[in-house]
Amino acid sequence: MQYKRCKCGKAERWDTGEAVRPCEGCTECQTTYAGSSADHKPLEPHDWKPQFNRDTGQEDGAVCTRCHKRKRGD
C-alpha cells in the first residue's frame, strides 16, 4: 500500500495500487492524489451516466464511469 495526498495536503488516502482516477482528489486545490509532488494532475469533472433501477426500470440517479461514484436522483 502507498500513502497518497493532494497538492495542498488536505485530502489524503491509502492507495491499494490501482491507478488514480482523474476525477478523484481534492476539491479545494483541484488536484488528484499522488505519491510525490511531481505526479499531481488537475482534477477532471465526473463523467456521469444515467443509472436505472432494475425493478422499476426508472432512472435512479447517475454513476461516474471513471470512479463509480453514485449521484442519486431526488
Rank of each mutant, 00 (worst) to 15 (best):
Q51I: 15
D47G: 06
A38D: 14
D47E: 15
G25T: 01
T31N: 00
L43H: 02
G73A: 03
G25L: 08
K7M: 12
P45I: 04
N53Q: 07
S37D: 15
D39Q: 13
R72A: 11
C8K: 03
P22T: 03
G17K: 02
R72E: 12
R5Q: 15
G61C: 04
D15A: 14
E59I: 13
A19T: 05
H46Q: 03
A38L: 07
C23F: 02
G73W: 01
G17N: 07
G17P: 01
A19N: 06
D60L: 02
D39M: 05
A19R: 09
K4A: 13
A11D: 13
T16S: 14
T32Q: 00
E24W: 07
G73F: 05
A38Q: 14
C64Y: 00
W14N: 10
R13M: 14
D74A: 14
H40G: 04
C26W: 02
G17C: 08
Y3C: 11
G73P: 02
K4D: 07
C67G: 02
C29I: 02
T56F: 05
K49D: 10
D47F: 09
W48K: 04
P50D: 08
A34Q: 05
H40M: 06
C8S: 08
E12G: 12
L43D: 01
C64T: 00
E18K: 12
Q2A: 15
K69Q: 11
R13Q: 11
K4H: 15
M1S: 15
P50S: 03
A19S: 08
G57R: 02
R66M: 08
F52Q: 05
K41T: 06
C23G: 00
W48R: 03
K49V: 15
R70M: 06
N53E: 11
E12T: 09
P45A: 04
S37L: 12
C6F: 06
R72T: 13
G61D: 02
R21N: 09
T31K: 00
V63W: 03
V20T: 07
Q30D: 11
W48Y: 08
E44N: 10
E12W: 15
V20C: 01
K10H: 09
D15Q: 09
M1P: 13
C23N: 07
Q58V: 10
D74F: 12
S36P: 03
S37I: 12
P50V: 06
K7L: 15
C26I: 03
E44S: 11
T56V: 04
R72H: 10
G9Q: 00
W14R: 04
R72K: 06
G25D: 05
G9M: 03
C29F: 06
F52H: 08
Y33P: 05
K10G: 10
C6H: 03
Y33R: 03
R70V: 14
G9S: 04
A34H: 00
D39P: 04
T16R: 13
Q58L: 12
K71I: 00
P22F: 00
N53P: 00
K10Q: 12
E18G: 13
C8F: 08
N53M: 02
C29G: 01
E59R: 15
P42H: 05
T32S: 02
S37N: 14
G57T: 07
R13L: 13
K49I: 15
K4S: 10
F52T: 05
D74M: 12
R5E: 14
K49C: 07
D60R: 11
R70G: 04
F52Y: 15
H40A: 06
K10D: 11
K49F: 13
A38N: 11
Q2W: 05
E18M: 14
R54K: 12
E59L: 10
W48D: 07
